[in-house]
Structures are given as structure tokens and as C-alpha cells.
Computed example of a mutant assay.
Amino acid sequence: MSTRRQFLFTGATALAFAGLLPRFVAAESFEVAYSDAEWRKRLPPERYRILREEGTEMPYSSPLNDEHRAGTFACAGCGLPLFSSKTKFESGTGWPSFWQPLDNAVGTRTDSSYGMVRSEVHCRRCGGHLGHVFEDGPEPTGLRYCMNGLSLTFTPDAA
């Protein structure tokens, strides 16, 4: 390998480990799939940034953080129901948090960005980025699904 090629490879590898290069996730197929241009048409810019580019909203910025009515939280990208309000709890983190998703609602993958290893959570139907899951939640699961409010919509239960 040439010196220049070694330099480029080593530099790219270091940036990737530091989380400064975009992650190249193995191609996954999802039931709901649109082109990038179509996602941009369907989603407002900030929702697009979070759901399609794995962004994060500012803590305490989502009105869903203070949503306490009975109902269902769904994917803002495709509408799949993801979480019941029965599993929502106040984590003190500034993001809507849940101790369990609905059955067959989310998928996870390893996220090694920002120099740490976390479990990224995405909608299993469209692949939209929702947030991360941590092992510091309440019983009965001990998990904390820390979700971006902009990745979700809320529908209250019928009275």
C-alpha cells in the first residue's frame, strides 16, 4: 500500500472510530421505503434530520416530554404505533422515555458514534431513527427507551 493510501486509510479509520464520519449501515430493507427525495417531501426539515439522518433534538424541547394523557406514541415517519403511554415515565433526561416498546414495533443496532457504544432504536417498519435504549430504566424491564419527541406523534385514547 502506498504511503498516501496508508495515510488516507488510517485517517478515515480514526475519524470513523471517533464518530466523525457518517455510519455506513448494512443495507436493510423495510416495509415502508421511499427515496431520499421523497422522505424530504414527506417530512419537515427537523423531523427529516432526526428520522433519516439520525439527529437528536435539544433536551426539553419536545411537547411530548410533558404528554401525560392515555394514548399511543407512533412513528412520525410511517405512523406505526411504537409505545403505549402506560410505559412512559419521567426520566429527568429531557426526552420522552419509555420502559418498553409495543410488540414488534422497534429494531435496534449498535451505534458507535461519538466515541461510545450505544444501542440505537429505529422504527422496524420504515427504519426511522427514534433514539437510544439504555439499561438504567425502571422495573419491570430496567430499560430506558430515550426517544426524540420529533420522531413520534401522539394519539390520545378515545374518551
Rank of each mutant, 00 (worst) to 15 (best):
M147Q: 15
E120Q: 13
P138R: 14
D136Q: 10
G94P: 02
R124F: 01
M147D: 09
Y145W: 08
C146T: 11
G127S: 03
G115E: 08
G142I: 13
L130C: 02
T141M: 12
L143Y: 07
H129V: 04
Y114R: 12
D103M: 04
T93Y: 04
N104V: 09
E120F: 04
F98G: 13
P138V: 11
G115V: 06
W99P: 10
G142D: 13
T108G: 12
T141W: 05
M116C: 03
E135H: 10
C146E: 10
E139G: 15
G128A: 10
S112E: 12
Y114H: 14
E120H: 06
G137A: 10
N104W: 06
S113K: 11
T108M: 10
W95A: 02
P101G: 06
V106G: 02
Q100W: 03
V106F: 08
G128Q: 02
E139Q: 15
P140T: 06
H122P: 06
S97K: 12
P138C: 11
E139I: 09
Y114F: 09
A105E: 04
M116D: 01
V133S: 00
Q100G: 10
E139T: 12
S119H: 09
Y114T: 10
E135S: 14
L102S: 05
R124H: 08
G94D: 08
N104F: 09
R109L: 13
D136G: 07
R144K: 14
M116I: 08
D136A: 07
R125Y: 01
G107D: 11
H129W: 03
R109V: 07
S112P: 15
F98R: 13
M147K: 05
W99Q: 11
P96I: 10
F98A: 15
S112D: 14
R109N: 08
T108Q: 13
V121Q: 04
S113M: 08
F98T: 12
R124W: 01
V106Q: 07
P101N: 08
T141N: 13
H132E: 04
P138Y: 13
R118W: 05
F134S: 00
F98M: 12
T110G: 05
Y145G: 07
E139F: 04
G128R: 00
Q100N: 12
M116G: 01
H132Q: 06
S112K: 14
G137T: 09
F134N: 01
P140H: 02
G107V: 08
A105H: 02
W95P: 00
G128E: 02
R125N: 11
G115S: 11
F134D: 01
D103L: 07
E120T: 05
Q100Y: 06
T93M: 09
G127C: 03
H132W: 06
T110Q: 13
R144T: 10
C123K: 03
N104S: 15
M147H: 06
F98H: 11
P138L: 12
H129D: 05
M116H: 02
S112T: 15
G127Q: 05
W95Y: 09
G128L: 00
E120D: 09
E120R: 06
E120W: 04
D111H: 01
D111F: 00
D103C: 02
